[in-house]
């Protein structure tokens, strides 16, 4: 069973929870503790171009994408103290900030007259009880499962997170029937869920 093999890997919970060889969580900590600009510049080098690429994959032009990537990094700088490694990895945190800014941007663009809530600036409407979740173990498992998805599922999952009109855009680009794309996504997400079942 795939699950049995994966369990070995997740014993290594001290592995850095983010990309490549840069320990991004300690860079954030340096920014939070002492406003370390050199540490921030490294984070910026790591993430600003990726966020820009993410936004361009979602259909934004280079200028818009760079502007929102800058804004994403402004949030990272300002909110570094609020980053909590128990809740998310650095890349997940930055992904969520960029995703929210993208949605706000698209909303504003489609309805310039509307009073659009700045979702990130609004007071936390209903602080949710912090249930006990071992985020680090779950993230390690997700990383494992994600890496071992069949290539055709891995591909559509990545595209699902990048494209702004996911299913139809993915189907068109890969020249596949819509149903095939949907079933690959369904299989991949069901597997991720299943592989996490024994974790808290």
């Amino acid at each position: 069973m795939a699950g049995a093999a994966l369990r070995l890997v997740t014993n290594n919970e001290n592995a850095p929870p983010s990309s490549g060889d840069v320990d991004t969580a300690s860079l954030i900590r340096a920014v939070a503790d002492r406003g370390d600009r050199a540490a921030f510049a490294r984070l910026y080098g790591e993430f600003a171009p990726r966020v820009k690429a993410f936004l361009m994959r979602g259909g934004l032009g280079a200028v818009e994408a760079e502007d929102i990537a800058q804004e994403t990094m402004v949030r990272v700088w300002r909110k570094a103290r609020l980053f909590d490694p128990a809740k998310a990895s650095v890349s997940t945190w930055i992904f969520a900030i960029a995703r929210n800014l993208r949605i706000d941007h698209l909303r504003r663009r489609s309805r310039p007259e509307a009073d659009i809530e700045e979702r990130e600036e609004e007071a936390d409407p209903a602080p949710l009880a912090d249930e006990h979740v071992d985020r680090r173990a779950r993230d390690a498992r997700i990383r494992e499962v994600f890496a071992t998805l069949p290539p055709n599922q891995h591909e559509v999952v990545l595209m699902h997170f990048y494209e702004d009109e996911p299913h139809s855009a993915i189907a068109q680009r890969l020249n596949l029937p819509l149903g095939t794309v949907k079933s690959r996504l369904r299989l991949a997400f069901a597997r991720i869920k299943r592989e996490l079942e024994d974790l808290s």
Partner: peptide, 26 residues
């Protein structure tokens, strides 16, 4: 609570997707 945890799991997949990208030069 259970589905909040599920969304957080898939946000982590989003984090991996972000890591997997080749950056676009600023």
């Amino acid at each position: 609570v259970e589905c909040r945890r599920g969304v957080a799991d898939f946000e982590a997949v989003g984090g991996l997707a972000l890591e997997a990208l080749d950056g676009e030069s600023m």
